[in-house]
Design a protein around this nucleic acid. Structure first.
Length: 573
RNA sequence: UGGGCGAUCGUCUAAUGGUAGGACAGUGCCCUUUGGAGGCACUUGUCUAGGUUCGAAUCCUAGUCGCCCAGCCA
């Protein structure tokens, strides 16, 4: 873990079967004196998302626990989909999460070795060149319930296979005309063992090897051997690869190379969240979001821009652990760890999203005083700041009701409340517009209550945030909600699409929020808590003329819950 | 209907033959210069049916339900 990303958040780690397995292997010296070696093997064909964060935490975290090492390996065996842009973003994301790899590796680093091993397998009579078309191969493969049948080219001589494979490599044949296959068992109940394709012809330029190759190894032929070359002891991957373990082992056994061990765990699923590269890509391409780093996206770049933190992600991953059961983690769990992390670190500030002007009639016109406010009550070391107070202020529209509903503690006609760190004020009268909306509230203040306490000891039910009107800085604030309105975005009726589950209110732009002056100095990447409102961060769209903030997460809102229950909306979920 | 994997509070997850525990969510109370944070309490669970055992979430048998696999993708 890098020092720069060391978090204060205490991470509670749950025991899991992967950790147990590694501990057992270390104890029994399954790999001799070799150190625990893992790898995180993304294909550089897209952006990393929260699901990858789990794999990263497991791959790097577990190796770290056992004093081992982790390689970042790009599984770049399909030149048609892969790009340098993605390898760059993946490295940035892994580092952001707080991990540092031992080595950066590429499956393409091993293309020569893989080729030699293919020759070796051909010579051993374990691989052959097949002239069947893709369609024919599919037909010969059989089905889930019926065995496949042998290709007519299966029994070519070693010499012929060697000749053909060499010429495949030399570019003599067009794409799709031939493949190299492992000779295993066309009747195997495991489809992956029915003579899997090892190499296909692809006259495509590779982002690293350029035009050196026109044949490329398949995942199954490359992955285990890449692990083996790197002496990976524990190769952790998701459950859908369990059926590939026999082929993973077969190549290693036939080649007699370092016996890396594959172990599968469950993929992360989150409610209200889609973690499928294909669909995420569709959201970007069809412009349902602004891009891969749209703050509503579950990509690491998206949630980073949104203001989520590595500490929260790591705490979540530690808490959910790893099992072999497939379920769906409640998004509330992520939000909990996120609030927990931010609560300890975020500097507080006062900001009014939907301003309502209040005028303190008995406060001297033109007077300005500065009140001392704590920067973070959770962390006294964060110190205090001076916030200007004056006769005209903004408060949140939600914080005033002419006629208060039951249990409403905030400002209402005749009611006294505290303005945070400033004074007690009492609402006296309202000014309304032609439509009858309250546009201004006139109050009186108690000059003896400076700092927020009355010498006579009287209490108020509510403390509210505020911003001095003449000192306020304006900002655009982007308020995000869930991208999807269903717990399972893939739950849609026939004929429908996951797009039908898009939440139409996932983004609300507040054009002119009023912030306390100190926020003009907000820094990119720093978390802020707008008191009583939520956690926010500066967005990179900010310019010299305009501040733009993203709402990372709202604060828990007990009043909203009370109100919802009272309005007959029932309990909040 | 072939093969593989799995099933514990609403959700996630511990318990490795010996008191079913934690976290999230929910509810109530306390506290609070954020209706935030914090504290306390409460509620809810071993898929089913048999069996082994002094004792079973754990082992055995049979069922049920769920997920994955028929790319020259990874």
């Amino acid at each position: 873990m890098t020092d720069a990303n060391t978090e204060t958040t205490e991470i509670r780690t749950v025991s899991n079967f992967l950790r147990d397995q590694i501990a057992e292997d270390v104890r029994t010296k399954k790999f001799g004196d070799a150190v625990v070696q893992t790898r995180f093997p993304p294909e550089p064909n897209g952006y990393l998302h929260i699901g990858h964060a789990k794999a990263i935490c497991l791959d790097f975290g577990l190796a770290d626990e056992f004093g081992g090492k982790t390689n970042l390996r790009f599984d770049d065996t399909n030149p048609e989909k892969e790009e340098q842009e993605y390898v760059d973003s993946i490295q940035e994301d892994v580092r952001w999460l707080g991990f540092e790899w031992d080595k950066v590796c590429y499956a393409s680093d091993y293309f020569d070795q893989l080729y030699e091993w293919a020759i070796q397998l051909i010579k051993a009579g374990k691989a052959y060149v097949d002239d069947l078309s893709a369609d024919e191969i599919r037909q010969y493969r059989g089905t889930l319930t019926e065995p496949g049948k042998n290709s007519p080219y299966r029994d070519r001589t070693v010499e012929e296979n060697l000749d053909l494979f060499t010429r495949m490599k030399d570019g003599e044949f067009p794409d799709g005309s031939r493949v190299l296959r492992a000779k295993i068992d066309m009747a195997s109940p495991n489809l992956n063992m029915r003579d899997p394709v090892m190499y296909r012809i692809l006259h495509a330029s590779h982002h690293r090897t350029g035009d050196k190759w026109c044949i490329y190894p398949m995942y199954d032929y490359a992955h285990g051997q890449s692990d083996s070359i790197e002496h990976v002891t524990h190769s952790m991957c998701t459950l859908e690869f369990a059926d590939h373990q026999p082929i993973y082992r077969w190549y290693i056994d036939q080649l007699g190379i370092f016996p890396s061990q594959q172990i599968e765990f469950d993929r992360l699923n989150l409610t209200y969240t889609l973690l499928s590269k294909r669909r995420l890509l569709q959201l970007v391409q069809e412009k349902h979001v602004s891009g891969w780093d749209d703050p509503r996206m579950p990509t690491l770049s998206g949630i980073r821009r949104r203001g989520f933190t590595p500490g929260a992600l790591r705490a979540l991953c530690a808490s959910i652990g790893a099992t072999r059961t497939n379920g769906s983690t409640d998004i509330e769990m992520l939000e909990h760890f996120q609030r927990d992390d931010l609560n300890k670190k975020a500097r507080r500030a006062m900001a009014v999203l939907r301003p309502l002007k209040i005028v303190i009639d008995n406060y001297p016109e033109g007077q300005v005083e500065f009140v001392d406010v704590q920067n973070n009550p959770e962390d006294p070391a964060a110190g205090t700041r001076q916030v200007p107070f004056s006769r005209e202020l903004y408060i949140e529209q939600d914080d005033f009701r002419e006629v208060p509903p039951p249990k409403y503690y905030r400002l209402s006609a005749g009611k006294e409340v505290r303005l945070r760190a400033a004074y007690f004020v009492t609402a006296q009268s309202v000014v309304k517009d032609a439509d009858g909306n309250v546009v201004e509230v006139h109050c009186t203040y108690d000059p003896a209550s400076r700092g927020g306490n009355s010498p006579d000891g009287r209490k108020v039910k509510s403390t509210m945030h505020w911003v001095s009107a003449q000192h306020a800085v304006s900002a655009e604030v982007r308020v995000y909600d869930k991208l999807f309105s269903k717990p399972n975005p893939n739950d849609f009726p026939e004929g429908g699409s996951f797009l039908d589950n898009l939440n139409p209110n996932s983004l609300e732009v507040i054009a002119d929020a009023k912030l306390e002056p100190s926020l003009a100095e907000a820094k990119l990447g720093a978390p802020y808590q707008f008191e009583r409102v939520g956690y926010f961060c500066l967005d990179r769209d900010t310019t010299a003329e305009k501040l733009v903030f993203n709402r990372t997460l709202a604060l828990k809102d007990t009043w909203a819950k009370i109100e919802k229950t009272a309005s007959g909306g029932g309990a909040a979920r």
